[in-house]
Design a protein around this nucleic acid. Structure first.
Length: 271
DNA sequence: CAGCGCCCCTGCCCGC
DNA sequence: TGCGGGCAGGGGCGCT
């Protein structure tokens, strides 16, 4: 489910409801996430004020004075604001209770998400420390991408999805950005021209910011913090359209697998 | 170290 | 209808 636009949509949806509030309780119904949730979590943050909800890559960072909760939605997770009358559904694993009208509820069928406590400097956390730049930041630019690309013989699609190069570009948006850039997904990173890096940076920024404006992409059951779906799915030009006509040249789009991920592209438009 | 597969897990869709 | 197989938006990890 969540790529960067979906995580950002979630952040914007939940932050106004919980920032500045004191956390009253932590309810862990199922601790078996990607890494087991620390059952002592409540003892660190119960009664503490939530200072800010930030995002780094696809991690949501809930900042408290004494540390940070790192929250990853994995492949199928979502966070919603609910009240105490809301029915608890299957896979509603964790609640952060601020008050009876304000509960942050985590739902994650596949349990690929994680909730971790870090009492130290979050920038030094091993999951965060080695990440590349944010795609929408100025540090992610054509000069940077071209320089980095010289050192990799990976197919550009695999490469651009590597969080050490740039964070937040998942499978959907990698496919979309490469199509918009007219770059073949199998082209080796070190064979990209400077001009192509320029275009690719631009298209990644465009597709991600457009998706954020649309509230993310809802394929099955993604909902933002307000429980509403995203509307970017209707803007997808290649993802999920294998065999269908290319929107530009009308030839059938090719679908194949690259690093266990479905890859869709136009053999005619993308070089 | 770079690159590549594997795997965590449940749900859903398709074909038989 | 029931069941098996394949696939799904992520990403850390272990191996070569």
């Amino acid at each position: 489910m969540p790529e960067l636009p979906e995580v950002e949509t979630t952040r914007r949806g939940i932050a106004p409801h919980i920032c500045g509030k004191h956390l009253r309780d932590v309810i862990i119904r199922d601790a078996r996430l990607r890494w087991p949730v620390d059952l002592e979590l409540a003892s660190f943050i119960k009664g503490k004020k939530l200072i800010a909800v930030e995002r780094r890559a696809k991690y949501l960072l809930l900042r408290f004075h004494n540390g940070t909760v790192l929250w990853h939605l994995g492949m199928s997770g979502n966070l919603r604001i609910v009240d105490s009358r809301s029915e608890i559904k299957k896979h509603d694993h964790i609640d952060f209770v601020f008050n009876k009208n304000c509960i942050l509820r985590f739902h994650d069928p596949r349990r690929f998400g994680c909730v971790l406590w870090d009492a130290g400097d979050i920038a030094e956390n091993p999951l965060i420390k080695h990440l590349g730049p944010e795609p929408l930041a100025d540090a992610f630019n054509a000069d940077y991408l071209f320089t980095r690309s010289r050192r990799s013989s990976k197919p550009v699609k695999t490469w651009i999805m590597d969080g050490k190069i740039v964070v937040g570009v998942g499978n959907i948006y990698a496919n979309e950005a490469l199509f918009s850039s007219a770059i073949h997904p199998l082209r080796k990173a070190n064979k990209l021209s400077k001009k192509q890096c320029d275009i690719l940076v631009d298209e990644i920024k465009k597709v991600l910011s457009h998706a954020i404006k649309q509230g993310g992409t809802t394929l099955r059951d993604f909902v933002g913090g307000d429980g509403k779906p995203g509307y970017f799915a209707q803007s997808l030009k290649v993802y999920g359209r294998g065999g269908q006509a290319c929107v530009t040249c009308h030839k059938p789009l090719k679908e194949s697998h690259l690093g266990q991920r479905t890859t869709v592209y136009c053999t005619s438009c993308q070089k």
